[in-house]
């Protein structure tokens, strides 16, 4: 994942980047360091980091920061999100709707169910609207017309209904339906 040059730089905290010069002001090619909740360090181009609305507003408030901690975000989904945003930057520079659509489709097709499920809260937290749209649609497509048990295991959700509650739920729906019928 981190071996190709296109992947985000992934190092452990101990082997962290060279210290930033204290007096330097922001440059266009500046790198920004993101730190995941499992203490992985990601060095990304500023333009990529600015795709994350959360990080962007963070920097607008505190322009001289160099490391942004992301306490909600683990390394794996973060690296995938960065990979997606890097491509989006290229499409911003050279707009090609057909290519972009193709890339977005391939991006989700090759991901496992778990990858998609793990990325959604990350894209949501980082406020990356385009990615969230792509992910939400992909996940929705994968669970469409699947059984309740399938959906639970897909998302790793525990059933918190008691048998009585579930039965009541079905009756409740019936009442709602009959209410409309009387109209």
């Amino acid at each position: 994942m981190s071996s190709s040059t296109d992947s985000p730089t992934l190092t452990t905290e101990t082997t962290q980047l060279s210290p930033q010069p204290d007096t330097e002001t922001a440059k266009p090619t500046k790198k920004i360091t993101l730190k995941s909740s499992d203490n992985q360090i990601f060095e990304v181009e500023e333009s990529v980091a600015m795709e994350f609305a959360t990080v962007k507003s963070f920097f607008e408030d505190s322009p001289s920061t160099d490391t942004v901690p992301l306490p909600n975000v683990t390394a794996k989904p973060l690296s995938q999100v960065i990979e997606f945003c890097k491509e989006q930057i290229k499409f911003k520079a050279n707009p090609d709707e057909a290519q972009k659509k193709k890339y977005n489709a391939e991006f989700v097709t090759e991901k496992s169910d778990k990858d998609l499920v793990d990325m959604i809260p990350v894209a949501n937290y980082l406020e990356i609207k385009d990615l969230l749209d792509v992910l939400n649609q992909a996940v929705a497509d994968r669970i469409e017309n699947k059984s309740v048990e399938y959906v639970r295991s897909f998302f790793g959700i525990d059933n918190d209904f008691t048998a009585e509650e579930e039965a009541a739920l079905r009756r409740e729906h019936a009442w709602a339906y009959e209410g409309v019928d009387e109209d």
């Binding site: 959604i120 809260p121 949501n124 969230l132 939400n136 649609q137 996940v139 929705a140 497509d141 669970i143 469409e144 017309n145 699947k146 059984s147 309740v148 959906v151 639970r152 998302f155 959700i157 525990d158 059933n159 918190d160 209904f161 579930e166 739920l169 729906h173």
Partner: peptide, 24 residues
């Protein structure tokens, strides 16, 4: 809001018959 965004895309059958029974 994010959950609702996903659930709004699953189609009528899932939304009616499956989603409400997943969890509270």
């Amino acid at each position: 809001d994010c959950l609702v965004n996903v659930l709004g895309r699953v189609g009528m059958e899932s939304l009616l018959l499956h989603v409400p029974f997943v969890c509270r």
